[in-house]
C-alpha cells in the first residue's frame, strides 16, 4: 500500500467517525458538562425523555425546548430537587418509550404518553397531568365535518401505526385513511386540500394549529371522541419517585402553574381544554 492511499484511508475513517459522533451528539452532549456544579443535586442530572418534534408540547428549537410537556417536566424536576441546569432532555420517540425506561436510558418520560394497561405491564405511570381526547383538525372554512360520523366519503390523515389511526380503522372502516410518518406532513396535505381532516389527540392538533405558519388556517373541531390520559413514565418498581412525581403534579395544578403553562403553550392557538381538565392525579404507581 502506498503512502498516499494509507492517508486517504485514514482520512476517510476519520470522516466516518466524525459523522457517527455527529449523529449521536444531540442526545449525549448536554449531560457531560454538568459534573462541576452538581453538588446541590442528588448525584448528577435527571434525564427526562420528551418529544423533540411536537409543537406546543415538546419541541426542540435550537438548543431550547418548548411546550407543555417541557413546562410540566421542568416543574416536576424542580420539586424533585433538580434545578433547570440539572435537567438533561433526551428524545423519546413513541415506539421506544417503554424500552428507554426499562433500559435505564431515562429517569422520567413526559411525552404525550397515554396510560394503558399494556404499557403498565412494563413500566409505571404517575399522573395523569392532562386528559386529552382524539379529535379532528379541519380547514378553518370547512363546516361539513363536525365529528367522526360526518367523515364518510372524506379523506382523513393520521400517522402510520398510531393509536388514533388504528381507532379510525376499527370504528370507521368506510373512511379513507391516509397514513404518513409524521403529523406535520398531514398538516401540509390538509393545507393543500389533498385530505379533508387530520386526527389525533386534541391537544396535539392544537399545537400544530398554533404554529405561526398555519395561524388562522385550521381549527380543532372540539368534539373529542376518546379519552387519553397523559401520564409520566417511570421505571417499574420506583414507587417512591413515582409518588413524588404525583405530589409535584398535584402541587402544580393547585398553585396555578399548570394553567399558566397550558395557556402559554398550546393555549395560544385559542385551544381550551374540555372540563375533564385539570385532572385528578390518581395513578397508584403500581
Amino acid at each position: 500500500m502506498t503512502r498516499s492511499t494509507t492517508w486517504a484511508l485514514a482520512a476517510s475513517a476519520a470522516a466516518f467517525a466524525l459523522t457517527l459522533s455527529a449523529c449521536g451528539g444531540s442526545a449525549a452532549a448536554p449531560g457531560t458538562d454538568t459534573t462541576a456544579g452538581g453538588d446541590a443535586a442528588p448525584s448528577g442530572p435527571i434525564r427526562i425523555g420528551i418529544k423533540y418534534d411536537q409543537p406546543g408540547l415538546g419541541l426542540q428549537e435550537g438548543t431550547n425546548f418548548t411546550g407543555f410537556d417541557v413546562e410540566v417536566a421542568t416543574y416536576v424536576a424542580g420539586e424533585l430537587g433538580y434545578p433547570e441546569d440539572q435537567i438533561e432532555f433526551i428524545q423519546a420517540p413513541s415506539p421506544q418509550r417503554e424500552t428507554m425506561l426499562e433500559g435505564d436510558q431515562v429517569d422520567l418520560i413526559f411525552a404525550t404518553y397515554s396510560i394503558t394497561d399494556t404499557r403498565k405491564e412494563r413500566i409505571s405511570f404517575a399522573g395523569p397531568y392532562f386528559i386529552a381526547g382524539q379529535d379532528l383538525l379541519v380547514r378553518a372554512d370547512d363546516t361539513s365535518i363536525t365529528g367522526p360520523e360526518t367523515l364518510t366519503g372524506k379523506r382523513l390523515c393520521s400517522v402510520a401505526g398510531s393509536t388514533p389511526a388504528e381507532n379510525v380503522k376499527k370504528e370507521h372502516p368506510d373512511v379513507e385513511l391516509i397514513e404518513y410518518d409524521t403529523y406535520s406532513l398531514c398538516v401540509s396535505a390538509l393545507d393543500s386540500g389533498a385530505v379533508d381532516a387530520l386526527t389525533t389527540d386534541n391537544v396535539i392538533l392544537a399545537g400544530y394549529a398554533a404554529q405561526p405558519q398555519w395561524e388562522g388556517k385550521f381549527r380543532v373541531v372540539g368534539n373529542p371522541f376518546s379519552t387519553e390520559r397523559y401520564g409520566v413514565g417511570v421505571p417499574k418498581g420506583e414507587t417512591e419517585r413515582c409518588e413524588a412525581v404525583n405530589a409535584a403534579l398535584e402541587k402544580m395544578i393547585e398553585d396555578g402553574a399548570w394553567q399558566t403553562a397550558l395557556d402559554e403553550t398550546v393555549g395560544r392557538s385559542g385551544f381550551e381544554p374540555d372540563d375533564r381538565n385539570p385532572p385528578s392525579v390518581d395513578e397508584d404507581c403500581a
Binding site: 415506539p95 405491564e121 393509536t163 388504528e166 397514513e179 404518513y180 410518518d181
Partner: peptide
Amino acid sequence: ATISVTEAAALMKSMIEFYSDLI
C-alpha cells in the same frame, strides 16, 4: 411505509403500537 402504503413495515409499526409486550 412513510408515504401511506400499508406494507410489512407499516404493519409492524401498528403491531408494536398495540402489542409492545410482543415486540
